[in-house]
């Protein structure tokens, strides 16, 4: 936003009208040598070359434009940027995302479950610049992808690079939760939340989901569990990261709803069932509103002065006038 620090100086602009009148239209002005070269009492002499007169007009116009620029510069133009500064600590949120091959099921048109989940996570994180978010993915094993951070850009970049099946074939729900909890233990946040998105039954990992949930509950972490996918037979298509082959087929989809409910219950969270993209988006909105925290915000303004640009422009305009008049038209006064 452009503002003027001292707009009062803009009143100098009113000087322009009399100045222009006196220097271009006033008949009694000085600096003229009356010479008679026309016929006695004939009309006044005017050069006929309209192109040259146009150039002269431009030259004078550039002089006055230069003066206008200087007056604007005197008024102190500055570009003001307002920036939100959060004074309160947000809540820590870690997404625990299933990346087992079944997440490639194509029942979330136009994409599969995995990409649909990525999309809703992206939207969720973008709207939460105040809260540190992290990401853990799991299949046969679990790994921390991004520790809870306010660096939204870094988070989204990493989310973009996620691929299915990088952690093998399996569904280690317990490991996923445990890793997420481990990386929240140093957090100073008063509230910590895990959002678990999965479509399978726990069938891998050394930690059973129930005890992982107990650990999380002990640390005061709430877990929201989202069961994703339709029931029954669904088409599936994914690329094997090791061989690069595209694998297609049908998959009999089912997931352990009771386990997810239990995890949510032990940790004071909630369980949701998301059979479609719309449902998934709706669930994320619900979690977003459930986990809204009080924010104390202050607005920080930073201003950058713009007088230099205007002054340089003014100098160029005035110099252009000077050059055209004195060098091209060889004006002597």
């Amino acid at each position: 936003m452009l503002i003027f620090e001292n707009p009062g100086y803009l009143l100098l602009l009113t000087l322009l009208i009399p100045s222009i009148y006196f220097s271009h239209f006033f008949r009694g002005r000085g600096g003229l040598v009356p010479v008679s070269i026309g016929l006695w009492k004939s009309s006044t002499f005017k050069p006929k070359n309209y192109f040259l007169r146009f150039i002269l007009f431009l030259s004078s116009a550039s002089f006055w434009a230069g003066i206008i620029c200087i007056i604007f510069a005197i008024a102190g133009p500055s570009f003001v940027e307002k920036e939100k500064i959060y004074l309160s600590r947000g809540i820590d949120i870690v997404f625990v995302l299933d990346e087992s091959p079944s997440m490639a099921a194509l029942d979330f048109p136009p994409t599969n479950r995995f990409d649909a989940s990525k999309e809703v996570i992206r939207k969720f994180v973008k709207a939460r610049e105040h809260d540190p978010v992290g990401l853990v993915t799991f299949a046969a094993e679990a790994a921390l992808r991004i520790p809870p951070t306010l660096d939204t850009e870094g988070f989204l970049d990493e989310l973009e690079t996620l691929k299915l099946m990088e952690l093998g074939n399996g569904t280690a729900v317990g490991l996923g939760i445990a890793i997420a909890a481990l990386h929240m233990q140093d957090s100073t946040a008063e509230e910590k939340v895990i959002i678990l998105i999965t479509d399978g039954e726990n069938n891998a990992g050394e930690i059973v989901p129930e005890s992982a949930a107990d650990i999380a509950a002990g640390m005061g972490i709430r877990i929201y569990t989202i069961g994703i996918g339709t029931r029954g037979e669904v088409p599936i298509e994914y690329e094997d990261p090791e061989t690069g082959k595209i694998i297609t087929g049908r998959y009999d989809s089912d997931f352990d709803e009771e386990l997810l409910m239990e995890i949510a219950e032990t940790t004071n969270g909630k369980y949701y069932f998301a059979p479609s993209t719309n449902a998934l988006e709706g669930i994320m909105d619900v979690i977003d509103s459930l986990e809204s925290s009080e924010k104390r915000v202050k607005i920080k303004t930073t201003s950058r002065s713009g007088y230099r640009q205007l002054t340089i422009l003014a100098m160029i305009l005035i110099f252009a006038d000077f050059f055209i008049k004195k060098v091209i038209f060889r004006e002597v006064f």
Partner: peptide, 23 residues
């Protein structure tokens, strides 16, 4: 910077005024 710019503007007006006012 304002101080300098005001003098610069004054310079321009003086140069015009000297030209235009008939002596």
């Amino acid at each position: 910077y304002r101080f300098f710019l005001v003098i610069a503007l004054l310079g321009l007006f003086v140069s015009r005024a000297v030209k235009v006012i008939k002596w």
